[in-house]
């Protein structure tokens, strides 16, 4: 017993180092597994508050460009609205559109990140606004990520530029689907893997979400094919996709809630 105590006293520095180092490694491993970074995330009172107050100042610098982006989106939506031929027929009763299955919430990005391998963003809406884990996040141009951790006022978003996020995506002109997985190199491009070999691909083809994960509705834009080649097993393609979103300049986003998600989950678990 004496010797054990002596050993601990003699090596106390090394033992402390070992303890703290393994705690950090534990946190790191946790952050590398999907939806597990419970303790160390920026969606808390302190870090969220700091980022929010800084963003209150810095958002003025990009005000002009963000206004232009929003005006462009308005323009696009207006053109859809007024060019859409609605049937003003008395016999036509629209009973479907009341029963929407996707709810949208607007939010602002208060912390953007695109320089690491696992990028996490922070938005200024949280559980107070009924935001929960696994809600989708998009911008007007396309997909952005999935909600990870939430606090009362803030939520973290696993960006598409995160090697942990797997989003189901498909080709627009055929139904072959694969998984989006970023290789951590260039924030302008992401990779789509597991597209079967018999798919007909062309440079410039559009990639959309497949709606299989029931997080995103089907048809949210992702990007265009930049180049593609077969993977090591030569059975499926790895496609390099140029994202529609400029990930370095994002301010206004929409959080999507799939109202039917609990029902779908329940059905799948039975």
């Amino acid at each position: 017993m004496q010797q054990i105590v002596n050993f601990i006293i003699r090596n106390k520095t090394f033992l402390l180092f070992l303890l703290l180092f393994s705690i950090s490694i534990l946190f790191t491993v946790q952050s590398h597994s999907y939806h597990k970074s419970k303790f160390i995330n920026s969606a808390n009172f302190l870090t969220g508050g700091v980022y929010n107050s800084i963003n209150n100042i810095s958002e003025y610098f990009s005000l002009k460009s963000q206004n232009e982006i929003l005006a462009k989106e308005n323009n696009r939506l207006k053109s859809i609205l007024y060019n859409h031929k609605t049937k003003r027929d008395s016999s036509y009763i629209d009973s479907i559109s009341f029963n929407t299955s996707y709810k949208f919430t607007t939010a602002n990005i208060i912390k953007n990140s695109y320089n690491t391998v696992n990028n996490v963003l922070l938005v200024n809406k949280g559980s107070k606004n009924n935001i929960k884990q696994d809600f989708g996040v998009i911008t007007d141009k396309g997909i952005l990520g999935i909600i990870d951790q939430t606090s009362k006022n803030y939520a973290t978003v696993l960006s598409v530029l995160n090697s942990e996020s797997n989003i189901s995506a498909q080709l627009k002109n055929s139904n072959q689907f694969g998984t989006l997985k970023w290789n951590g190199k260039n924030p302008k491009y992401t990779q789509l893997i597991d597209i079967p070999k018999n798919a007909i691909l062309k440079k410039g083809d559009t990639i959309i979400t497949s709606g299989r994960s029931s997080i995103f509705p089907k048809g949210v834009l992702i990007g265009t094919i930049n180049d593609f080649n077969l993977d090591q097993s030569e059975n499926s393609y790895i496609i390099n996709i140029e994202l529609f979103n400029d990930m370095t300049n994002i301010e206004h986003v929409y959080i999507i809630e799939n109202v039917n998600l609990p029902e779908i989950k329940k059905l799948l678990n039975e």
């Binding site: 950090s24 946190f27 790191t28 946790q30 952050s31 590398h32 302190l46």
Partner: peptide, 11 residues
């Protein structure tokens, strides 16, 4: 905590 990087800076 600020950068959402798990524990890499601590390590």
């Amino acid at each position: 905590l600020f950068l959402d990087t798990g524990g890499i800076h601590a390590a």
